[in-house]
């Protein structure tokens, strides 16, 4: 069943009076239970696309359908792990994780149970009562992931959530996220710079063109799970995607030097 449908999404931004086209007609069908990875050069429009899906940014044209119905506002059915973390500095770590649960009216005891489970998964139990400034960048990112998972959304939108993690933690979470996905049958859209990450996680990998973003190519990665970072068999996918991406990154660099 089609969970989410992006239909011809166009988005421009105003840049000091000039209009900059960020998304140039994105069409994407996300099936229920899909794990889609989006890769593309920096500044191409990946975050913008997630923001549109989340309902935080209105497209100039096109629409997003969720379960066949158009959406235009944000909602807890599409939870985002923001690239910047976006944690609340006035709340303790554990209260950050419980923010959305509290709003959803989940009673206190149950809330505690859920938040403790995910903090434990992210190995942050010891920091439950810390404030955000007391955490490292990687720890903040893990709190943001815990907060999103605790919400148990229909669709999880993740914007480079592993970018700030050390490789050991990243490898652990790569496996953890695959297990969560298999267990909960969640639909995930995951943006990353890192091609091996996309190959390990995605059952589909979508390559975005340099700005304005369009979908350049899509790869289906049909391989057993849980996939491990060191698995040699993933290399061939890696190289195929790298080949596609290289020219886009070169295009971006050329763009910027003009």
């Amino acid at each position: 069943m089609t969970k989410l449908q992006a239909k011809n999404i166009v988005k421009h931004f105003d840049h000091n009076g000039n209009s900059v086209l960020a998304l140039d007609g994105i069409n994407l069908n996300v099936e229920e239970g899909d794990f889609i990875c989006i890769v593309g050069p920096s500044g191409c429009g990946k975050s913008t696309f997630l923001n549109v899906v989340a309902g935080l940014e209105k497209p100039n044209s096109g629409e997003i359908l969720l379960n066949g119905k158009p959406i235009s506002t944000p909602g807890p059915d599409r939870i985002m792990v923001f690239q910047e973390g976006a944690l609340f500095p006035w709340l303790k770590v554990i209260d950050n994780v419980e923010f959305g649960l509290k709003m959803a009216g989940i009673p206190k005891g149950e809330r505690r149970q859920i938040s403790e489970r995910y903090l434990d998964m992210m190995q942050l139990t010891k920091f439950a009562d810390s404030y955000i400034y007391q955490l490292s960048t990687g720890m903040k990112q893990r709190v943001a992931i815990a907060r999103a998972l605790a919400m148990d959304p229909e669709i999880l939108l993740m914007d480079e959530p592993f970018a700030a993690l050390d490789s050991q933690t990243r490898d652990l979470l790569l496996v953890e996220l695959q297990l969560i996905w298999e267990r909960t049958k969640k639909t995930i859209i995951f943006v990353t710079h890192n091609i091996s990450e996309s190959v390990i996680l995605g059952n589909r990998v979508v390559v975005f063109k340099n700005r304005p973003a369009k979908i350049k190519k899509e790869f289906v990665i049909d391989y057993r799970r849980p996939r491990l970072a060191e698995d040699e068999n993933l290399q061939k996918y890696y190289h195929q995607i790298l080949e596609e991406l290289k020219s886009e990154v070169m295009a971006r660099i050329k763009d910027e030097n003009q």
Binding site: L56, P76, R78, I79, E84, G100, M103
Partner: peptide, 20 residues
């Protein structure tokens, strides 16, 4: 970004005002 994150989790109206 704070308001975006809160709205993303479903906060709006007075709750958003009071808690964010």
């Amino acid at each position: 970004i704070y308001l975006d994150a809160a709205k993303n989790m479903g906060a709006k109206g007075f709750y958003l005002f009071r808690h964010v």
